[in-house]
Write a protein that binds this DNA or RNA. Sequence first.
DNA 1: CGGATCGTTGATCAACTTCAACGGTCGTGG
DNA 2: CCACGACCGTTGAAGTTGATCAACGATCCG
Lengths: 187, 187
Amino acid sequence: MHGHLKKYVSFEDSDFSQMLSYFDELDLKKKAIVMKAGNLCNHNYFVMDGCLHMYFNSEKGTERTVQFALEGWWISDFLAYHNQTNTDFNIQAVENTKVLAISYEKQEQLHHEFPIFERYFRTIHQIGYGASLNKMKYLHDLSKEDIYLHFTEHFPEFAQRVPQYLIASFLGLTPEYVSEIRAKKRS
Amino acid sequence: MHGHLKKYVSFEDSDFSQMLSYFDELDLKKKAIVMKAGNLCNHNYFVMDGCLHMYFNSEKGTERTVQFALEGWWISDFLAYHNQTNTDFNIQAVENTKVLAISYEKQEQLHHEFPIFERYFRTIHQIGYGASLNKMKYLHDLSKEDIYLHFTEHFPEFAQRVPQYLIASFLGLTPEYVSEIRAKKRS
DNA sequence: CGGATCGTTGATCAACTTCAACGGTCGTGG
DNA sequence: CCACGACCGTTGAAGTTGATCAACGATCCG
């Protein structure tokens, strides 16, 4: 966390431990669920080690993930978090994962006490929003096959760590079709 | 702008005119292009009146829009803006549009002079990012037909103001298929 | 060893795209 | 003010991508 913060803003190292006191450290087992659809979304999560994903249950009963978070990423249903309303999403650990969690109220206090965090989150969210717009570009431009190939090429670490059916779900295609693509590539 | 700012943060009204001095006011004719693919992305745009859209030229030569901005919305390629790199997108006026533009350097100064803007943009981008994740939910969950119907139902003003082929492009379907859907609904 | 979980394969089928041609409307210049 | 052209929406036929379903294999973990 410390190193990550330093990449975006500067602050007194002596303040860091007080900053940390606003967060709760969680140790999540693989498959553990930390945010549940239907509940108030009042936490924001930072991944220190491991991997989380945010998904929802589609009409047809299958689970669809809309976002991953590896080390150094924040994850939450930011719209519901901002409005302090219920969320439609679940957040689950893909692997055993170490997380820093902060509640909405605590984050407000943190911003008040250390305004540097306004700048930090402004930057983080700007990047997240921008990346999301960029992803939209690929979703619109490429065939499903090319979406998959483009993704595995650009994020090979993901393809290693995360089960295929989650990647399929994230990219909006079926696991069966991913199989077909991989078979085609092999031959 | 004043009223919009007030919705998210509080400040001294007497400061407002100085805040405004960081921005340039632009009057864009319909179809005018204000950000060009291939160029450095160093402006951020606020729509006061009218409508902008951000699009790119797909492999196949058709234009694909990834984002609209009506009154009260910010628009830019936020990733390229943050990194101060070239963008792949164009931003164009859908109608005659009044815009406030701010350069990267000016925005940095603005944040420094009025830290309240860090909080403002933190909030704005958080909402934008959250909304983008929510859009992803619909893109994954619904058929193209339902995506279109859901969109026109939830944003009827859009469907009025914006040409159909732009909406089609934004939602990721062909204008021809939109025609088919509308014909089906009529009968 | 046994069961759940995840990936694979192939057949069938529907949703959606592509292409080409037509028609209506708006705005601009003559 | 009319006429022309550009622009946008529509229609229908043909074609393709990618989903669905069901069954089988492999692997991991208790």
